[in-house]
Amino acid sequence: MNRNDKRASVCGLAFLPLSQATVRNFPGSPDIGVQGTFTPVPVSSAEYGETGEAGYPIEQELEAVVTDTSSAELNGLRTLFAEAGLVLLDFTNGDRRVIGTDEFPVQVNTELSGTPATLSLTFKRDSPEPAKVYSSF
């Protein structure tokens, strides 16, 4: 979901560990500059939502599912999400938003379950700012 287009949905997800990122962020700005290589995550479905208003904590929540649970893919994703970082979401309306900042990174939780196995990626957190428009520098 996006603040400007409530019908937009997530069509892509990528992650960048904070240790591999250079971030240019100004609190209160709707944009964030990120230098580093985001790693695409092969999600089969993803839902993101945020609620709240400026000046108050923004509740952010992500639920995504990865169905490729081969041992190589699982090891790669567990290594990727071992540290906090930035989540880049691509939306169906062409928007690209970053969740997290250098001061308030995102810790993504992983859980393997089911038959056939699926990997759930989740987080629920309060953030001082909403997701920001992505730009590289």
Results as ranks from 00 to 15, higher is better:
residue 1 M to D: 14
residue 5 D to L: 12
residue 5 D to Q: 08
residue 9 S to V: 15
residue 12 G to P: 06
residue 12 G to T: 08
residue 12 G to C: 01
residue 12 G to W: 00
residue 13 L to R: 07
residue 15 F to W: 03
residue 18 L to P: 00
residue 20 Q to I: 03
residue 20 Q to W: 03
residue 23 V to Q: 03
residue 24 R to G: 01
residue 25 N to C: 07
residue 28 G to N: 09
residue 28 G to Q: 01
residue 29 S to T: 07
residue 29 S to Q: 14
residue 33 G to H: 07
residue 37 T to Q: 02
residue 38 F to P: 00
residue 38 F to M: 05
residue 40 P to A: 03
residue 40 P to I: 01
residue 41 V to K: 00
residue 42 P to F: 08
residue 43 V to A: 10
residue 43 V to E: 12
residue 44 S to Q: 12
residue 44 S to H: 13
residue 46 A to W: 07
residue 53 E to Y: 07
residue 54 A to C: 04
residue 59 E to R: 11
residue 59 E to F: 04
residue 61 E to V: 09
residue 62 L to C: 02
residue 65 V to K: 14
residue 68 D to M: 01
residue 68 D to A: 10
residue 70 S to Y: 10
residue 71 S to V: 05
residue 73 E to D: 02
residue 74 L to S: 05
residue 81 F to N: 08
residue 81 F to I: 10
residue 82 A to N: 11
residue 86 L to T: 09
residue 86 L to H: 04
residue 87 V to N: 09
residue 88 L to C: 11
residue 92 T to N: 07
residue 93 N to I: 07
residue 94 G to Y: 05
residue 95 D to K: 09
residue 95 D to S: 11
residue 95 D to L: 09
residue 96 R to K: 13
residue 97 R to H: 04
residue 97 R to S: 00
residue 97 R to I: 03
residue 97 R to E: 07
residue 97 R to T: 00
residue 99 I to D: 06
residue 101 T to F: 00
residue 101 T to N: 08
residue 106 V to Y: 02
residue 107 Q to A: 10
residue 107 Q to P: 13
residue 108 V to Y: 00
residue 109 N to T: 07
residue 111 E to R: 14
residue 111 E to V: 06
residue 112 L to S: 09
residue 113 S to N: 08
residue 113 S to I: 02
residue 114 G to N: 09
residue 115 T to H: 12
residue 115 T to F: 15
residue 118 T to V: 15
residue 124 K to R: 14
residue 126 D to L: 12
residue 127 S to M: 06
residue 127 S to G: 01
residue 127 S to P: 04
residue 128 P to S: 14
residue 129 E to R: 03
residue 130 P to E: 08
residue 133 V to I: 13
residue 134 Y to F: 15
residue 135 S to F: 08
residue 135 S to D: 01
residue 137 F to M: 14
